[in-house]
Design a protein around this nucleic acid. Structure first.
Lengths: 296, 296
DNA sequence: TTGCTCCTCACGTCACGTGAGGTGGC
DNA sequence: TTGCTCCTCACGTCACGTGAGGTGGC
């Protein structure tokens, strides 16, 4: 047969697989798709026809947003089990992204109904990531909350300082969301940290109850992770004595869309006494978990 | 009042609005959020309490994936109309992204049912973007397709060369998808290009029928844009005489999921005679539009 | 004086696109 | 010899994070 080529130069290969020459060179360098031949003198790359199939696989998986590192795994292994594992993990990621976007459209719908709310910033829904903290738990009635929190933050910050760490964010507290008697309730004072594992045998170990590894022993700073989830959030501006107005706002918002709460409230003290600002400038974020999938 | 600060240093401001100091500095440089005071000697930034609200707006819109440039617009204008316009445009983008991800999960589901198909690469669904081309239209019976296409590609490539342009991808052709008699049918031979506007008064102007601006005059190269849409795609490997096997594969795939076709088929000649490869290595992509929203 | 905060570069991210400047092959 | 292809840098993208190395303020 006359004129039958065995190798495609990068341009012809590029047009055949709809991948730019630059990208093919990058794939070469990354070890994703190595040309069959590289001329040692000129550096010219030559691709075999059999590599067209491989490139098509790359192209298709790439079009499905599969990261190149994982496409590499699929091609290296060439085994359905590996392919399945990669695609399953990827499917999960894509589903999460889609769910996030669905929620964004929902929030955008709300904001579009009242664009001025963007700069007023009343109540918004938000996905709260999980938050590693150092925490002190206590059983305290409402009249004692303030003193309990003051004391706890002093101890938590001192403990962190001892460990040579800085807080990863403003301090906060978690309260039961469904109970407003004057009985003592479980209150958790926390300071965010990125550097501690919530490990009951970690370096913060104190005499703890082994049978209850996930709850900080009352009075002892313990690493903990506040759970992720969907929350309704309002930022209240003003002194702590008026914070209940913020709760009323969130409550009205929840009721207005027939949402129910699903767990303890988290208050985060974005601007507090330590700022030196007057009390009228204090800012407290109120984040109340809402039941997943409740949305209108 | 003693000890009341009017300015927050960047660290305190950062903790209050949950935006990192580095990001605040970037926002300063970008003109998104300029500190009220910058010490001319030390460069220290000072933020006023009133700026906490502005930062909160940035934070919330950022959490909704609004690009910083558009957040800037919202803050500069401080007007509900601008906010609404920005959010509406953004909403549309987010919806498109979500729709794309939904389709990806659907394709991933298919691939997971048969992971070996990834390396076999049978039939896949895909979103085809719109494609600007230079095209020649003809009314040709099946027996004349080959000669018509050969002739057309010669003329199209010559025309492009005259204009000092190179093809933006492999050549292809469009055929009616719903008609397989031996009657003459409308066939469009095309070569992709990025540089021509599908403008009837563009520089490619020939004597054309003004009453039919969107259809290339038979025999004359005309700029055109192939429409975007959802397509079922198969890449057939082998000589053109056996291409019908590729169509059978796509047809069976469509039937298997009760999809119906919705327009003309596009064949793209990824590897053809110009490659110098033997006919058994020819690769032809068959892309058949499917009706939107038909998916199982 | 000691920590702590703040400052300004500089570089990495991810998968490319887009030149600049130069060489090889028909 | 003329075009065309191919080569290797280098830089930009987007909104940051993560240092390095140095200074200011209580």
């Amino acid at each position: 047969v006359v004129g039958v080529a065995e190798l495609l130069p990068i341009g012809a290969f590029s047009r055949a697989v709809l991948i730019s020459p630059k990208t093919l060179r990058d794939y070469h360098e990354a070890g994703l798709l190595t040309p069959a031949v590289v001329d040692p003198r000129t550096g010219y790359r030559g691709y075999r026809p059999a590599q067209l199939g491989e490139a098509a696989v790359i192209r298709e998986l790439w079009a499905l947003d599969v990261p190149l590192a994982e496409i590499t795994q699929v091609l290296r292994a060439r085994h359905p089990d590996v392919t399945r594992a990669v695609l399953t993990a990827h499917q999960e990621r894509v589903r999460e992204q889609a769910e996030r976007l669905r929620r964004i459209t929902s929030t955008l719908d709300d904001l579009l109904a009242d664009p001025a709310a963007v700069t007023r910033l009343a109540v918004l829904e938000r996905d709260q990531p999980s938050l590693p903290v150092l925490a002190i738990r206590g059983n305290v009635a409402e009249s004692g909350w303030s003193a309990f929190l003051d004391d706890s933050y002093n101890r938590l910050l001192a403990e962190l300082a001892c460990l040579g760490l800085a807080p990863a964010g403003p301090v906060g507290a978690m309260f039961p969301g469904d109970q407003f008697s004057d009985e003592p309730v479980e209150v958790v004072a926390f300071v965010p940290t990125t550097d501690l594992l919530p490990d009951p045998v970690g370096r913060l170990e104190r005499p703890v109850r082994r049978d209850d590894p996930d709850t900080p022993t009352a009075g002892a700073p313990r690493p903990r992770v506040l759970p992720a989830g969907r929350v309704a959030v309002a930022t209240f501006v003003g002194p702590y004595t008026e914070l209940s107005a913020g709760y009323r706002a969130v409550g009205a918002w929840l009721a207005g869309r027939q949402l129910t709460t699903a767990g303890p409230v988290v208050e985060t003290y974005l601007v507090g006494p330590e700022s030196g600002l007057p009390e009228t400038e204090y800012r407290t974020e109120i984040a109340w978990p809402v039941r997943e999938g409740d949305a209108a």
